[in-house]
Computed example of a mutant assay.
Amino acid sequence: MFLAVLMALTSPFSAGAETDPSLIARRAAGQLEAASVALQEAEGARDRVAALTQTIHAYEEGLVALRQGLRQAAIREAAIRLEFDSRRDRVSRLLGVLQTMQNSPTPLLLMHPSGPVGTARSGMILAEVTPAIQAQAEDLRYQLEELSLLRALQESAADTLNEGLQGAQNARTALSQAVSDRTELPRRFTEDPAQLQSLLEGSETLEGFAGGLASLPESDKAIPIPDFELGQGNLPLPVSGTLLRGYNEADAAGIRRPGFLIATLPLSIVTAPWPATIRYRGPLLDYGNVMILEPHQDYLMVFAGLGRVYGEVGEVVSAGAPLGLMGGSSEGIEAFLPNSADGAGADRTETLYIEIRNGQSPVDPSGWFNLNKD
């Protein structure tokens, strides 16, 4: 039923492909269906962690697309209703004229008080006016049909939406278990809990902790990792979201931080932009859960604000490997649908702080990440 409604919602009054609710929602339905198949196939995948990570990405993209389709449907519906309200008097008069013409006997329509000449003139006027009246009536009919289809789209999306939300949650649960079960990750060194605890207790800022972390001894065990500087300008963002604040940009309280702040949806997956060694994972100061990666000697990547972190200190993760999940709770359909009509990004309630450090100093991440990637 849902796909049938999507196929039907293609009236001449629909917007372009980038804002057409039917096309957006159809794409979303396809993405969610593909994600469901991928989730089933991930059970037997050789690299189950990688398969589940891609599955979660597919669910996230499908749900975002579906939200966009529902949002566009709500916007279009509101626009039609506003147009009806602004044209209410004219539409009422038009309907009155059409109803009067329909109820009047044909002989009376052909008579005029001025005689045959007046009748002829009124007939000519009527002949000119009738196409315009007909066009307005057709326009009204098309818009009423579109309004009905928009409402049907929003109502019929509920089942697809519910399945997508449940599938995404199942994939996250499976990923957490798969990460716990994996044993194949190479290690450069083994964590020294006493050293980390001492560093945590003696650090009052993220900068102080990161600087101290870089000075901790490591194993000389060589594990080949691509040169980090080759990725400069092309790193993908570790989470799907929108840039909330840039490098050294002041927040509402006037505080400036030497990194990016990304607004994202609850429980979004966070992945490694580059192969790297996990130097720290866990709570830190007031940053929530923090993941610190070393992609290259003298470089650190800091990701703060996660709800859950994966992996162990000393492990070497590949590009695209899951680092953890954002905080928040799983959205139910009741929370999802009302937010769909809100285009202000109110649904992106979680924030991920990203910092890149070279030696003891932070550097502008905009020179490293590809912010123009769709």
Rank of each mutant, 00 (worst) to 15 (best):
F2Q: 04
M7D: 14
T10L: 11
T10R: 15
P12I: 13
G16P: 00
G16I: 01
E18S: 09
I24M: 10
R27P: 00
A29H: 04
Q31P: 02
Q31W: 03
S36F: 00
V37I: 11
V37S: 05
E41A: 12
A42R: 06
E43L: 04
E43G: 01
D47W: 09
V49Y: 02
A50K: 13
L52P: 04
T53V: 06
E60Q: 07
G62K: 00
L63P: 00
L63Q: 04
L63W: 03
A65I: 00
L66Q: 07
R76F: 01
A79D: 14
L82W: 03
E83Q: 15
F84Y: 02
R93S: 12
R93P: 08
L94I: 09
V97A: 10
L98K: 10
Q102K: 11
P105I: 07
L108W: 10
L110Q: 13
L110E: 12
L110K: 15
M111F: 15
H112V: 05
S114Y: 14
M124A: 13
V129Q: 14
I133Y: 13
E138K: 13
E138A: 15
R141T: 12
R141D: 15
Y142H: 13
E145I: 11
E146P: 11
S148H: 12
R151A: 11
A157R: 04
L161P: 03
E163H: 13
A168D: 00
A168V: 00
Q169A: 13
N170P: 01
A171D: 00
Q177W: 06
A178Q: 01
V179M: 12
V179L: 09
E184G: 08
R187P: 03
E201I: 00
S203C: 03
E204W: 11
E204F: 11
A214L: 14
L216T: 05
E218N: 10
S219H: 09
I223P: 05
P224H: 08
Q232R: 15
L237V: 02
P238M: 05
G241D: 05
G246F: 08
A250Y: 04
P258G: 03
A263Q: 09
L265Q: 07
L267T: 10
S268A: 14
P273M: 09
T277C: 10
P283A: 11
D286Y: 05
Y287T: 01
V290S: 02
I292D: 01
I292A: 03
F303R: 01
A304E: 05
G307R: 10
Y310S: 00
Y310H: 09
G311T: 02
G314A: 08
G314K: 11
V316Q: 12
P322D: 05
L323W: 07
L325C: 01
G327F: 03
E334T: 15
A335V: 10
F336Y: 13
S340A: 15
G343W: 07
G345S: 07
E350K: 11
Y353P: 01
I354T: 12
R357D: 01
P365F: 02
W368L: 07
F369S: 02
N372V: 11
K373L: 14
